[in-house]
Amino acid sequence: MTHTARDLLTTTTATLAPDPNANPLVPRIAAGTAPRATLAALALEQTWVIPADRRAFEFLAERSAVTDPEAAAFFTTLAQGEALAGERLTAFARACGADEASYEPLPGCQAYPAYVAWLALNASPPDVVLALTANFSAWGGYCATIATALRDHYGFTDEACAFFDFFAEPSPDLDRLATAAVQAGLDTGRLDEMSACRYGRLLQTYEAMFWNALSATP
């Protein structure tokens, strides 16, 4: 049985790491073969995901403020990060020539934020911290790959790549907050490792759906 938050975060992240073949789109972007229309769809889907996740994290912060203050600090930081990311997303969407007015979101892409909202309403906050942190590792890697490819193959500016740079950059502060929240959950018995792993597995599955749905766009 794992006894420390750091051990638990490490083992859970490794256990939930996605199959290298689970994401069909990022390798195409990395090779420069994904069409700009698909990049535009990625930008437009994120215009729905980012504000939805921000509100879910704000709700989690409010819900956990009394019972799980360490988790509340983690979710507050996440919400602030989503707000910053949203500001950077505009330049990427503009560089792609994305047309928000005529775009219809893809169900496969919006399953992820819908589940984050479910977690915000139903799950124990320490469990959500663990599940999200494990998922963020894969997302950060995808963003680093995309940021490089947008510059190398698509000629995007630093401003247009800033959205992906933001998520690709390690965040020692967020890592510290996650560790504190998970440790508090372990110490108080409010963290259920089995539930957290289940939530994390579903998050990874919904993220795979996101990339698969985008990959199928014309």
Rank of each mutant, 00 (worst) to 15 (best):
M1G: 15
T2G: 09
H3D: 13
H3T: 14
H3A: 14
T4R: 15
A5L: 02
R6Y: 11
D7T: 09
D7G: 10
T11A: 12
T11G: 03
T13D: 00
A14I: 02
A14P: 01
T15L: 10
P18S: 08
P18E: 07
P18T: 06
D19S: 15
D19P: 15
N23D: 15
N23F: 08
N23T: 12
P24D: 15
L25I: 02
V26P: 03
P27S: 07
P27E: 15
A31P: 13
G32T: 13
T33M: 11
T33A: 15
P35S: 10
R36D: 15
R36N: 13
L39F: 03
A40S: 07
A41V: 13
E45T: 03
Q46N: 11
T47P: 02
R54G: 09
A56N: 12
E58R: 14
A61E: 15
E62Y: 12
R63F: 04
S64F: 11
T67M: 12
P69S: 08
A71H: 05
A71Q: 05
A73K: 05
F74G: 06
E82V: 01
A83M: 14
L84H: 04
A85M: 02
E87N: 06
T90R: 08
A91L: 03
A91W: 00
A93P: 01
A93T: 02
R94P: 13
R94A: 15
R94K: 12
G97S: 11
D99S: 10
E100G: 13
Y103G: 06
C109G: 14
Q110S: 07
Y112V: 01
Y112H: 13
Y112A: 08
A114I: 12
V116A: 05
W118M: 15
L119N: 06
L121G: 11
A123V: 03
P126H: 07
V128G: 07
V128L: 06
A131Q: 01
A131M: 04
L132I: 14
L132H: 11
A134E: 01
N135Y: 04
S137G: 03
A138K: 02
G140V: 00
G140R: 00
G140N: 01
G141S: 02
T145D: 08
T145P: 01
T145S: 07
I146N: 02
R151I: 00
H153D: 04
Y154L: 10
G155D: 13
D158T: 08
A160V: 10
A160P: 12
F163P: 04
D165Y: 00
E169C: 05
P170V: 02
S171H: 06
P172G: 06
D173F: 14
L174Q: 13
D175A: 08
T179M: 09
T179Y: 05
A180Q: 05
A180H: 03
L186A: 14
D187S: 13
T188P: 13
T188V: 09
R190Q: 08
D192P: 12
D192H: 14
E193M: 14
S195G: 06
A196G: 06
C197S: 10
Y199C: 08
G200C: 04
G200R: 02
G200E: 03
Q204I: 12
T205V: 07
Y206N: 11
E207V: 01
E207G: 01
E207Y: 03
A208C: 06
M209K: 12
M209D: 12
F210G: 00
W211T: 00
N212S: 09
N212F: 10
N212I: 13
A213D: 09
A216F: 10
A216Q: 12
P218F: 01
